[in-house]
């Protein structure tokens, strides 16, 4: 684990990631365990039918009476993106800006590794960590669904998880890029949090308001999940948009990092 900047960064993250993963797994297990009783409850069907169309959009736009809609809403409309988002922003801000503030970036950058490469390997490690967390979440959700025999396919679970992972990547990239460009961890966390919050608000509230559809369409949150995370998922355009934006942010942040004074 000490052979490269990439593996060392993975190692740095492993302990706190295990904690996050545990929380995410518990959430998934809890929601999955709930479905069998919800499915048999006529009240739910009734409530859903009585919900105004606009409000239904607010909870993710999915049909709560189907297992697919239920999991889309309960897991992907808010809870999982928030958990993964906090992890992503935290790691993105910690890995360059955090180390710079702590001071140990100085000696690392005095090793014979180009500065851009140090940042790139660190970014890759953060993205790999998020991918691993989402992959485990995907396996856990799919296993849970198989155990209770809910009517959701593996492809649908994978679809939602791809959107979740890519949204996590984007938020990590925002924090990492701002941290690499400024050297300030607080600024990096704030940037990631603001982007995440605005993306969420734009995706949900704008969909409720007439004439603000363009705003919802511009939100990366919408790109990741569209109306229904498991039913629709990000689609090819959503994947492309999130990946390109992530890459562009990282490229810009790393470029600034190579140009500026470190540790001042």
């Amino acid at each position: 684990m000490l052979g490269s900047v990439f593996t060392k960064t993975l190692r740095d993250q492993r302990r706190s990631v295990i904690g996050w993963l545990l929380g995410i797994v518990l959430l998934i297990a809890y929601v999955v365990a709930f479905w069998p009783s919800m499915e048999r409850s006529p009240a739910l069907t009734q409530i859903t039918e009585e919900l105004p169309e606009a409000l239904r959009a607010f909870v993710g736009g999915a049909d709560l009476t189907t297992a697919r809609g239920f999991f889309s809403t309960q897991l992907f409309a808010f809870m999982l993106p928030v958990l993964v988002g906090i992890l992503a922003v935290g790691k993105g801000a910690a890995t360059v800006a955090g180390e710079e503030e702590r001071g140990d970036l100085d000696l690392l950058l005095a090793q014979p590794v180009p500065r851009w490469r140090v940042a790139l390997e660190k970014a890759a490690a953060v993205l790999a960590t998020i991918a691993a967390v989402v992959a485990v979440s995907c396996a856990v959700l799919w296993t849970g669904i198989a155990v209770i025999g809910a009517d959701v396919t593996a492809a649908e679970v994978a679809r939602g998880m791809v959107g979740l992972g890519l949204l996590g990547w984007l938020l990590a990239a925002v924090a990492l890029a701002v941290g690499a460009a400024t050297g300030h961890r607080g600024t990096a966390v704030a940037a990631g949090a603001v982007v995440g919050l605005l993306a969420y608000l734009a995706s949900t509230f704008a969909r409720l308001a007439n004439g603000l559809g363009w705003l919802a369409a511009a939100s990366p949150w919408t790109w990741a999940f569209r109306g229904d995370a498991l039913g629709e998922g990000p689609g090819a355009s959503g994947v492309a948009g999130l990946v390109v934006l992530t890459a562009a942010l990282l490229a810009a942040g790393i470029w600034r990092f190579t140009e500026r004074d470190v540790g001042v």
Partner: peptide, 20 residues
């Protein structure tokens, strides 16, 4: 810079090392 650092050793004054 990279070629120089290959043949150079450095000790910072405010030495911060990964505590873990």
């Amino acid at each position: 810079a990279v070629a120089i650092r290959r043949r150079t050793g450095y000790l910072p004054s405010e030495l911060a090392l990964d505590p873990r």
